[in-house]
Amino acid sequence: MTRWRKGTLSDEDRSLWDEVKKTAIPLRPDTKPRLSKDASPTLSKAIERTPTAPPLKQQIREFTLGAKAKKPLPRNNLMPSISNQIMQAPLQMDRKKYGKMRRGKLAPEARIDLHGMTLAQAQPALTNFIASSHARGLRLVLVITGKGKDRDQGGPIPTRVGVLKHQTPDWLRSGPLRLMVMQVTEAHLSHGGSGAYYVYLRRSG
């Protein structure tokens, strides 16, 4: 066992002191810590070599009137609305006919009103309607969903406004319906506007 001698630090003590210095935050950065008279010379030299933080005034960058502030952080990319999602979908049908449909110049050959139904009721009703319309050789049908009402009761999970309006395009793009549906877009005001969808079907057979 090595006997400790006054005025010296062992390698283990010196290593421990170096680790302490890394985590220590001085209360007064511009002053050196005071040592007792009994402190060892080695410890005194180690403290003198410890770097001190610059004064607070030097840490804060000056800002003058008219100077440019830092560039703001980019905003969060929120999910686009259901209307924008449908508008950005690739065009699958004839462009001229699509333009007439968007302007309400094409009359729907059949329609279904899902307004007021629950999701469990609306999905099979929509599936049967599209399948039967496709089997009959119809091309343009109208699906009425309504714009939806705000029924949020203030719970921890917010309720989306217009659940049927948001869910219907997903149903039309998935499962067996995606093989029958060519194009989906919001209806013209004369046929319900944003509360309804034009669904252009592929040719049967």
Rank of each mutant, 00 (worst) to 15 (best):
R139T: 15
A122Q: 08
L73Y: 10
K68E: 09
P72D: 05
Q123N: 13
T127P: 02
Q85R: 15
K149V: 10
N77Q: 14
L140A: 06
G148F: 04
F129P: 01
K70E: 10
R139W: 05
H115I: 07
K70Y: 03
R139G: 07
M117I: 06
D94L: 11
V141C: 08
I130Y: 00
L114Q: 06
Q85E: 12
P108Q: 03
P90G: 05
R95F: 10
L119I: 15
R111S: 13
M93K: 08
G146W: 01
S133M: 03
L114H: 04
G104N: 01
V143P: 00
N84R: 15
L114C: 06
P72M: 07
Q123G: 03
K149N: 10
K105I: 05
H134A: 04
H115T: 11
L73T: 11
A131D: 15
R95E: 14
R75S: 15
I86Y: 03
G99E: 11
L138R: 07
P72G: 04
P124V: 08
G99R: 09
P74D: 13
A125K: 09
P124K: 07
A120N: 15
G116A: 12
K147M: 04
P124Q: 10
M93L: 11
K105R: 11
I144S: 02
T118N: 13
H134E: 02
T127G: 04
A135M: 09
G99N: 11
L119D: 14
L142H: 01
S133R: 00
M87Y: 14
L142S: 03
L91D: 09
I86C: 04
R136P: 00
M101E: 02
L106E: 05
A89K: 15
S133P: 00
L142D: 00
V143Q: 00
L78M: 13
G104T: 04
P90C: 06
L119S: 14
I144C: 03
K149F: 09
L78F: 15
G104A: 06
G148E: 03
P80V: 07
A120G: 14
S81W: 09
T127I: 04
F129S: 05
A125P: 01
S132P: 02
V143E: 00
Q92W: 08
G137T: 09
T118K: 10
M79K: 14
S133Q: 05
K96E: 14
Q92T: 13
G99W: 08
L91E: 09
A110W: 00
D150N: 13
Y98N: 07
A122H: 04
Q85S: 05
